[in-house]
Design a binder for these strands. Structure first.
Lengths: 345, 345
DNA sequence: GCGATCCGCTAAAACGATTTATTAGACATT
DNA sequence: AATGTCTAATAAATCGTTTTAGCGGATCGC
C-alpha cells in the first residue's frame, strides 16, 4: 500500500532520482535536462500518478505548505465563514489550513500557537486574544509570516486585515440621525478590545458631527462573562431607564440578539416603538421579522486579503507591513425607518 | 531560528541520538537505558524545550498525527459545531485536524480526498456526498481508518456515527399527534440521501402507528438547487393548497428556516394558526419568537464518538466495524402547543 | 594542442527522527 | 579457558525528497 516515489520513476525511466526531481520541479530547462528525458519523466509520473511525499519534501525544504488559522470560535457565523473562504483561497496556492478556536482565552491561544509551531506551519492567521502581545511579538521577531484579523495590537506594528470599525459605526449613527432619530442609546461590551473602542469612537464622532446629544448615560456596557438572561435583564433595565428612547445601537452581533429579546420582553415593537441596529450581520438578523438593520463585514474580502497578505510574505520575503482596512457596509432592513414625527414616550 | 534537535540533546548529554530517542519515546526501560542517563536526557529535553520535528518523525514512521475532516459546509451551524468538538477531542490524543467543505459536491469531495491522501493524514472523518461510493470503497480497501458522519452508504459497510433519524422523526410526529394536531404536512428535499429517507420512514411509521391520516399529497419535496425565494414560494403554494392545515414538519433546518418565512408571508401566526417543527436545531429556532420546536442532534456526543471510533482504529488495528447511532432529542418550544379544539380552516 | 567552457546528467549529502543490528565489556557457567 | 548471557549503549540504515558539487565528454578559442 506504499505510494510510489521518485526512485520508482527514476528506475523506470532509467535516470537518476536527481533528474526526476529537477524535471518534476520545473527546473528541467534551468538544469539542462534534455527534452526527451523530461518528457519521458513527465509521462511516467502522470501514468504512475506520482504524488510527492509532503513530509519528505517538508523535511528537506523546511516548508509544510500549511497555514495555521486561529479564530475566536469556529462555530461563530463570522469566523466560520472566514475560515471557509480562507481554506478555499489557501487551496488555490496549494496550502492547507490547520485551525483552532481560542474562545478568547489566552491560554488556549498559547496552546494553539505552540501546536502550530510544533507542526511547523509556514504562516499564521491569528485573531488575538487579550494579552497575547508577548507571543505575537515573539512570533513577529521570529520572522514567521503572520497576519492578524478582526482586531490588532496597537503596540505592535503587524500585518492585519480588518473592517473599518470607525466608519461602520459612524455610518450607523449618521443613518439613524438621518432617519430622524434623536434619543439614541449604545450598548457595548466591557472589553477593552481595540475594535470595540473604534466602534465607539466612530459612533461618538458622528453624533458630535451632527450636533446630536450623546451623554454618557446613553451608553451601557455589558460584561462578557454573564449569562444571556442576565444580559437581557440588564439591557431591559437600561432601556426602561431612558424616557423617550428612539433607537438603540448594539456594538456586536450577539448583543444585538440580546437586544431583540430585550425589546420583545418589554412588549415594544422593533422598528415602530424603537429602532434597532447592530454591528455585524447574523442569520437571525436577515431572517427576523422585521429584518434587523446592521453594519456588515465583508467576509469574503476579509478572507481573501488575509490569504493574499500571507502569500505575499510567504513567497517574496517582502517584509513591509501590510495593513488592510476594508469598508463596512450598512445593510438596511426594516428595524429602522423614517421617523415622521418627533418621538414621544 | 532553527529548532533544536535530538542531536543537540545527544551532544549536550554526551550520549548518542539513539539513546535520546529511546528515552524520549518512553522506551528507556525496555531498552535498558540507565536511570541516570534517562533522567539527564529528560531534564535536558525539558530545559531546551525540545519539540520533535513532526515531519521527520512522520517520514520515518508513516504517521502524521493528523486527521482529515470532510464536512458539507463548515459555515453551517451543525458542521461548524461538530468540527469544533472534533478538533478539541482530537487534540487530546495529540492529533490535529485538516478540514474542508464539499458543498455536497462530488468533485469537491474527490479533490479533498486527494489532498488529504497527498498530505498523508492518518485517518478520515467524512460526510459523504452523493455518488462518493467508489472513493469510499477504495479508501476502505486501503485500510485507512475512516468514519462517516451524518449519513452513510447503505451498500458499503463502514464505521459511522449518526443520529437516529428514524426515531427523531417518529418522536416529532408522535408529539404533534399528542398535542392534538391532525392535518400534518411534511416538507423534505428531493435528495435521495439515506438520512432523509429514514426521517421520512420514521415520520410515516408514527403516523401509521397512531392511525393518523398521512396521504401522499401532504408531502412536498423541494429541490436543493433552487433559490431561497423559489423555495419559499413553493412552500407557500403547498401550504395554501391544504385546507385545514394543522401543523407542518420540515425535514432539515434550512427548510425549517424557509418555512418560517413562508408562514409569515402568508400572514399566518406560527404556533397559533399552524404548528411548525423542524429536524435539526438552529440559532434562529432558539432565538425566534415564538421559539421553534425541533429535533436536535447531540452534536457534542456525535463529535466525541467520531474521534473515539477513529482513535480505536488508529491505535489498536481493531478492524471490526463500529456503527454508532445516537438518540435525537425533541426540543419543545412555542411553535407547537396544545390544540384545544379540532382544527377548522 | 591545450586549457576553458558547455552539456547533460548523477552521486551523495542533508533534513531529523526511528529502528535494527551490533558492540564492548562485565559476569556467570561448565 | 572457552562459551554464553546480560548490560548499557551506539552505529548505521532508513524514510523520500531537494540540492550541492562534480564528472566525463564534446566543443571552442587561440
Amino acid at each position: 500500500m506504499k505510494g510510489i516515489s521518485i526512485k520508482d520513476i527514476a528506475k523506470q525511466a532509467g535516470v537518476s532520482p536527481t533528474t526526476v526531481s529537477f524535471v518534476l520541479n520545473g527546473k528541467g530547462r534551468e538544469k539542462r535536462i534534455s527534452e526527451q528525458v523530461s518528457k519521458k519523466i513527465l509521462k511516467l509520473a502522470a501514468k504512475l500518478k506520482y504524488k510527492p511525499n509532503q513530509l519528505a519534501r517538508g523535511l528537506r525544504t523546511g516548508k509544510t505548505k500549511t497555514i495555521g488559522l486561529i479564530v475566536e470560535d469556529i462555530a461563530n457565523h463570522f469566523f466560520a465563514n472566514v475560515a471557509k473562504i480562507v481554506e478555499e483561497e489557501a487551496d488555490k496556492f496549494g496550502y492547507k489550513v490547520l485551525y483552532g478556536s481560542t474562545e478568547d482565552n489566552l491560554n488556549k491561544a498559547r496552546g494553539l500557537l505552540e501546536v502550530l509551531e510544533y507542526r511547523q506551519v509556514d504562516g499564521y492567521i491569528i485573531t488575538p486574544t487579550p494579552n497575547l502581545d508577548k507571543e505575537i511579538e515573539i512570533l513577529k521577531n521570529s520572522r514567521k509570516p503572520m497576519v492578524l484579523m478582526d482586531r490588532y495590537l496597537p503596540q505592535i506594528p503587524t500585518n492585519y486585515v480588518m473592517v473599518n470599525n470607525f466608519q461602520g459605526a459612524y455610518d450607523a449613527a449618521e443613518y439613524l440621525l438621518d432617519l430622524g432619530y434623536r434619543k439614541i442609546a449604545y450598548v457595548t461590551t466591557t472589553s477593552e478590545q481595540i475594535q470595540m473602542k473604534e466602534r465607539m469612537s466612530g459612533f461618538t464622532a458622528a453624533m458630535k458631527a451632527h450636533g446630536a446629544n450623546f451623554p454618557r448615560k446613553m451608553i451601557k456596557k455589558i460584561p462578557f462573562s454573564i449569562t444571556k438572561e442576565e444580559a437581557v435583564g440588564q439591557i431591559m433595565e437600561f432601556m426602561k431607564g431612558i424616557p423617550g428612547l428612539d433607537a438603540i445601537f448594539f456594538a456586536t452581533n450577539y448583543l444585538g440578539v440580546f437586544g431583540i429579546e430585550s425589546i420583545k420582553n418589554l412588549g415594544w415593537k422593533i422598528g415602530e416603538d424603537v429602532a434597532l441596529i447592530s454591528f455585524d450581520d447574523h442569520d437571525l438578523f436577515r431572517l427576523h421579522t422585521p429584518g434587523i438593520t446592521c453594519v456588515s463585514q465583508p467576509i469574503h474580502e476579509i478572507a481573501q486579503h488575509l490569504v493574499q497578505v500571507l502569500m505575499n510574505e510567504l513567497n517574496q520575503h517582502q517584509h513591509q507591513i501590510n495593513q488592510v482596512v476594508l469598508p463596512a457596509t450598512l445593510v438596511k432592513r426594516e428595524s429602522c425607518r423614517k421617523r415622521a414625527k418627533a418621538g414621544v414616550v
